[in-house]
């Protein structure tokens, strides 16, 4: 399989089959919290894609060239969280300076990317041996981070789109907002379960 073929396989796998939100159940907090409006969902998605890509790159390098040579693999969680926290802080400063509106609409969820398990999840999955015993190299780790972020954004946007329409729909008062959102989340996860059968 050539490079493009492998890339396509990885994209389908990261976005549809092993989607971080709907099949790994990571990063559920922003999935439910920032999916009320399309704009902020898009902003959050972009922030997560950026952070996940950067986190994949930095965490991979730190693991490969600092932790492994010193036999400190057991520090991976600590080192990754430190890296991710610094990255998120950096992104936050950048967005605050360049797009105050986006900063305001992301609100508390931007700092929450720090503790977003999807970001730590992708960093750890990148260094975990695959089913055939091999590990991703640097390029594939970064691509995996990027595509997983795209998968997250895709689901977040789908959720936001449906929820925007649900606002208009007639439904009992007690079902408005979060209750219908949770039912929707469950239904989407069931729908994505259908991709499980896809094999390459």
């Amino acid at each position: 399989m050539g490079f493009l073929g492998q890339l396509f396989t990885m994209a389908i796998s990261a976005i549809l089959i092993q989607n971080f939100v709907l099949s790994r159940f990571l990063g559920l907090c922003p999935y439910l919290g920032v999916s009320k409006k399309m704009d902020s969902a898009f902003g959050m998605g972009m922030a997560v894609i950026f952070v996940m890509t950067m986190a994949s790159a930095f965490c991979y390098l730190i693991y490969q060239y600092i932790l492994v040579p010193f036999e400190l693999e057991y520090l991976q969680t600590l080192a990754f969280i430190l890296t991710i926290a610094a990255l998120v802080q950096f992104v936050e400063m950048f967005i605050k300076k360049n797009s105050p509106a986006l900063y305001k609409s992301l609100g508390v969820y931007l700092p929450l990317i720090t503790t977003n398990c999807a970001v730590l999840g992708v960093a750890i999955l990148n260094i975990t041996p695959l089913a055939d015993g091999t590990r991703y190299n640097f390029i594939w780790a970064v691509l995996n981070g990027f595509l997983s972020g795209v998968g997250f954004t895709f689901v977040l946007l789908a959720m936001a789109g449906i929820r925007e329409r649900l606002e208009m729909a007639e439904m009992p008062k007690s079902m408005r907002g979060m209750p219908s959102g949770l039912i929707l989340a469950g239904t989407m996860a069931l729908a994505f379960y259908g991709f499980m059968g896809m094999k390459f």
């Binding site: 400190l72 080192a79 300076k97």
Partner: peptide
């Protein structure tokens, strides 16, 4: 000693980068 030194220096480097960034992106 080794893990402490490595994690400490990682933290220090990140801290310096952030301190520098806060000067570059002042709000």
């Amino acid at each position: 000693v080794l893990p402490v030194v490595i994690m400490g220096s990682l933290g220090l480097i990140f801290g310096l980068i952030l301190a520098f960034a806060s000067k570059v992106f002042p709000v």
